[in-house]
């Protein structure tokens, strides 16, 4: 029912055939059948890059300094690979679209949204999750300790992501200003509203020893 000044759509049979939506992205050709597993491209293209998937392919990751061997489809995100295949559930899935930061991991020293990173693409890189911040003897990272001291959490669901974003920020800039800390943590959302104390914790963590 549309308002009076706008023409309502005629009620119509709406068949949810998803195919229509897929033929739409400015792309050539029609959807091909299932492409085989790893294979050479044919000779006419003259190139040699291997095609992997779409089925399960071996993926070898280095996470928190430990090697993890998986067999997964190329479409599996780094976050889902960790949470569903490696039982590293510390980092959370919240928006799943690279906005909220709860999935923040550190890859080769930089913070990334692991929900928007394919696991297959971080092979050969150093991946760190929130679990990896605790030292072998069980001591928390100073940033983790600061979050506890300042009560920089409520429900705690955004917390691992905020901790990782803070660690990445401080590893890049040991002594940021408050404005730099704010900008550095702008990629993370807390719904309980713990920002004030997250900021305090991050500021208190400045200059701390690094992992």
């Amino acid at each position: 029912m549309a308002s009076k000044d706008e023409k309502p759509d005629k009620p119509e049979r709406f068949s949810v055939s998803r195919r229509d939506f897929l033929k739409s992205a400015g792309v050539t050709g029609i959807a091909a059948g299932v492409v085989g597993g790893a294979a050479e491209l044919d000779a006419q293209t003259g190139a040699a890059a291997r095609v992997l998937g779409p089925g399960d392919v071996p993926v070898q990751l280095t996470v928190n300094g430990r090697r993890i061997d998986l067999r997964i489809e190329p479409r599996v995100t780094l976050l889902d690979a960790m949470r569903q295949r490696a039982d590293l559930t510390g980092n959370k899935r919240v928006c799943d679209r690279g906005t909220c930061g709860a999935c923040t991991m550190i890859v080769d020293g930089r913070s990334v949204y692991s929900c928007s990173t394919l696991a297959i693409e971080v092979q050969g890189k150093q991946v760190r999750t929130v679990e990896g911040l605790v030292s072998a003897n069980g001591t928390m990272h100073p940033v983790q300790q600061a979050f506890c001291d300042q009560d920089a959490m409520m429900c705690g669901f955004c917390t691992p992501g905020f901790v990782m974003a803070t660690v990445a920020l401080l590893e890049k800039n040991r002594n940021p200003t408050e404005a730099q800390v704010r900008k550095g943590l702008d990629g993370n959302i807390c719904r309980c509203g713990t920002f004030v104390r997250v900021l305090e914790a991050a500021m208190k963590s400045r200059g701390v020893a690094r992992a």
Partner: peptide, 21 residues
């Protein structure tokens, strides 16, 4: 689901973009 190609150079990359699908 999709297949994944990781070319090492421009030539391989543009070749890999040519696909039946």
């Amino acid at each position: 689901a999709f297949a994944y190609v990781n070319p090492a150079n421009e030539k391989e990359a543009v070749a890999a973009l040519r696909d039946a699908g």
